[in-house]
Every structure is written in C-alpha cells, then in structure tokens.
C-alpha cells in the first residue's frame, strides 16, 4: 500500500507492520521517523516502535484489524511535521586510539584503500557522524557520514571475536563495537568509552539524532582517560 506520505506499509505478521520509505536515508527522513516514533509510543495499543535507516517497525498489543485506519493515522501524524525542524541532538566526542596495537586492521585497510595511514586517520576523525538508530548489538550506533574514500567491503570471513571498544569500518559505515562480538568490519582503533552498560540508567546514552566525532588520542592519553573514567571525572559530552 503506497500513499502520499511516500512510505509503503508491509504487514509483517498479525500484530506488526513495517513502514518503508523508498528514498535515500537523510536527516529529514530521520526526523520524520523520530517524530512518528515519539507520537506512536504514546498510543496505548502500540507495544513498540523501532526505526531503521528508512523504515519504522510498529508492533501492536493486538491484532491489526483495520489497515486503512492505521494508514490514515500515520498520514495524519506525518502531516503535522511539515516544517522539518533541525534535529536537536546532543554532540559526543569519542576519543579513539588509532595506534597499531589497538588497530589490528589499519595497515591492511589503508593499503587496500590506497591511503596513507595518517590520511585514513584524518579522514575518519575530521567528520561528524549522525546517529540514525541503535541495532546489531546492545548500544551499537548506526552512523552516517563516513567519507566515501573510506568505504570498503566487509571481510569475507568475519572474525569470531572483536573486542568491546573496537572502532571499525565496514562497507559505507563506521561503528563502535559495544560488546565483545563476532564481526566482519575492519578494526582501525579503540575507544575506552563504554557505550552500553546494562547496570546504568539509561544503559545507552547515545540516541538517534545525536552526533558524534572521533578524537584522535595516543596510548598515553588512553591510559589517562581510562583512569579518569574509573574515577568518574572524565567528560566526553560537548
């Protein structure tokens, strides 16, 4: 079912549907998705609402009976955000140590990309990245904004264990492993910042719509930050 707001509704199962926009992910679309999610989460029959780059999954606490009702309802919400306000996210600075000991794949990747290692680090740390959504692993942010010169296909064979804190590049994306996990991205650095902790509230401080920057640090500063984090006096919010 297509309609004037540019999305298509897919029925996933008896209580779940997916709205899918046939357009390139953008901050405008992201703000639409976040607005829809915020509004829908207040509706009692909506159990949960999750976003992807250009899609929104909605699960009801009952069976979907009247698809047309929901379609009109989504359109009504979307018509209320004609003026796309700029996303008011927070800005985070994530320190990253790109030294070889912490970046097992950086030399290989720089050769494959025909870049000098320093140039690779510069291209990775100069941009600001927009957080689109959290997925894959607990707290793992999907980011846009990677310089096209750093795009490179994932490893053919994923590594069985990528350590928590690894900063990596895969395809057109860059990301931070938030827990130890198997993974097929190229590891180019390490951050001491923990992006996910089930014992804190909220467990994940980064939210869709926020921006993050990577700040190059050396292994001495890495140690200092680790000590600061333990003491609780390190601040990385800008």
């Amino acid at each position: 079912m297509e309609n004037k707001s540019g999305y298509k509704i897919n029925i996933i199962n008896q209580d779940t549907f997916l709205l899918d926009w046939n357009e390139k992910p953008s901050e405008i679309l992201l703000s639409k998705l976040l607005f829809l999610r915020k509004t829908l989460e207040k509706k009692p029959e909506v159990l949960l609402c999750r976003i992807g780059y250009r899609s929104l999954l909605i699960q009801l606490n009952k069976k979907i009976k009247n698809l047309e009702y929901w379609n009109q309802y989504f359109n009504k919400i979307l018509s209320k955000i004609e003026k796309h306000k700029k996303l008011q996210g927070k800005k985070w600075i994530i320190p990253v140590c790109y030294e070889n000991n912490f970046a097992p794949d950086i030399i290989k990747l720089s050769k494959a990309l025909k870049l000098d290692v320093n140039e690779l680090i510069h291209l990775h740390s100069k941009n600001t990245y927009k957080v689109y959504f959290i997925g894959f692993l607990p707290g793992f942010p999907y980011l846009s904004g990677l310089d096209p010169r750093l795009h490179y296909q994932r490893k053919a064979k994923p590594k069985l264990n990528v350590p928590k804190g690894s900063v990596a590049i895969g395809g057109k994306q860059t990301g931070i492993y938030t827990t130890d996990s198997p993974g097929g991205w190229h590891i180019i650095g390490f951050t001491p910042i923990s992006l996910f902790n089930p014992k804190t509230s909220p467990p994940c401080f980064i939210k869709p719509g926020d921006t993050i920057c990577f700040q190059k640090i050396d292994s001495n500063s890495l140690k200092d930050i680790e000590i600061g984090l333990q003491r609780g006096d390190y601040n990385f919010f800008k």
Binding site: I12, R50, Y53, R54, L57, Q59, G135, F136, Y142, G171
Partner: peptide
C-alpha cells in the same frame, strides 16, 4: 542486493 539496515524480529 543488501538493503538499508532495517528492523527484524524473531521469525524473520
């Protein structure tokens, strides 16, 4: 083709 990363649920 791969798709733009999107939500999945058990049974997908």
């Amino acid at each position: 083709p791969e798709i733009w990363t999107s939500p999945v649920i058990p049974g997908t």
